[in-house]
Design a protein around this nucleic acid. Structure first.
Lengths: 224, 224
DNA sequence: CCGTATCCAATAAGATACTG
DNA sequence: CAGTATCTTATTGGATACGG
């Protein structure tokens, strides 16, 4: 009698709900699935292609990434778009509301930085480390700096504008910045957060500024 | 040849890792499983018993709650303790670091409040609504208030101290507060966030203050 | 090459019954 | 009450095959 395995199509998105009016619970229904928030994080500094996302989210499988992107789109946090010719490639872009999730990413990152079992030697994506700079910057120490810091992570470049104690980042050609770091993101993390020597990565431009920049991101004390 | 289904015991907690140095990813390894953060949320205003947690997390099953509590404990976010006699009951309490996750809960809640598909009529726990007050208070409108607001949610009481535009909450007997609300949390939410009339819930004390209190928590505009 | 779709094995979550 | 034990269902991940 257990025949007719009815395939039980959920009409729309009934899903597993927390059945809780609490905003936190609702947020978890929007971005609480495994990988969701990390996919959204990767969109925080501009549109990305499927293969870039896959490369920067080590361990995600193609079908899960595909599903997460569909969900983000259905929930209004991202959209799929095709760049105009001659590029004509498909990219995924965060919506304005999706970008507003950055404080969530920051709160999580700031909190977890105190974890005794955090392993900072694992690989890190370019977007992650740049967002971590926005999170961890010591505003008092940075307040009097006004500079443009460039990053070349393989093919992609970013320009960070440091001013008034905070940092804005966008994708772009770092040519002409006051300092340009050329490195894999994980090496840059080793320098900024792990105390590795500055000359283990590529630096052009104002070396004194580069040195100062790498000291602007103090880690909080560990819990245990 | 695929015999020997070795039962592959993971020695300790190898688990599914994101393999990512990003603090956000690590945070998700600590509190990213389903229910984890909501369990921690329920501990934010003081120790709770297993059955209270189960009652305030509608839909969680005993085995999952049990597992989540064990994980929170193993990760240093909560601890299990036995109250001294004559109570002698077992309760779960957040650690100091666990309590530091409140900004995460707030960032999620504030962000999700803009969601077009948020349903504020669902049930809500006492802890949730009190935390939402801490999140959503309009500091400018509240700055000149100094008052003690009491809440009776069934058996349990809370006292909120409103001062300097922010709110502190602790468990305790609301007797003697300037206002005391006696209601189910979900009804209180209907009044504060849903515009239901104040007289749909129990109010004792300074009624004008009560009215003013219920207007201190404006919701942000919806996204769509 | 850029994704999608499908299949399968491994885990996690949910429901329910049961024990000290 | 405070969980365990057991069973069922759902989700995830990995491999691979397919369509544009």
């Amino acid at each position: 009698m257990q025949l007719d395995k009815v395939t039980e199509e959920r009409p729309t998105e009934a899903k597993r709900s927390y059945d809780d009016a609490c905003g936190t619970a609702h947020a978890l229904e929007l971005i609480g699935e495994r990988w969701s928030l990390l996919v959204l994080r990767e969109l925080m500094l501009g549109p990305r292609r499927f293969s870039e996302l896959r490369a920067d989210l080590p361990g995600i499988s193609a079908n899960v990434l595909s599903q997460r992107l569909d969900e983000l789109e259905a929930r209004g946090l991202a959209r799929k778009l095709r760049l105009p010719p001659p590029a004509s490639v498909q990219v995924y872009e965060a919506t304005a509301w999706g970008l507003e999730a950055e404080p969530i990413v920051q709160a999580l990152g700031r909190w977890a930085a105190r974890s005794p079992r955090h392993d900072p030697t694992l690989p890190i994506s370019g977007v992650s480390i740049l967002l971590s700079f926005r999170t961890m910057i010591d505003r008092d120490q940075a307040r009097d700096l006004d500079a443009r810091i460039g990053f070349r992570f393989g093919e992609v470049g970013y320009v960070a504008r440091l001013r008034g104690g905070s940092i804005d980042v966008e994708r772009g050609d770092p040519h002409g910045c006051d300092v340009v770091f050329t490195t894999a993101p994980t090496m840059l993390a080793a320098v900024v957060y792990g105390g590795a020597p500055l000359d283990s990565i590529g630096v052009e431009g104002d070396i004194a500024l580069a040195k100062r920049f790498t000291t602007l991101f103090p880690l909080p004390p560990k819990v245990a």
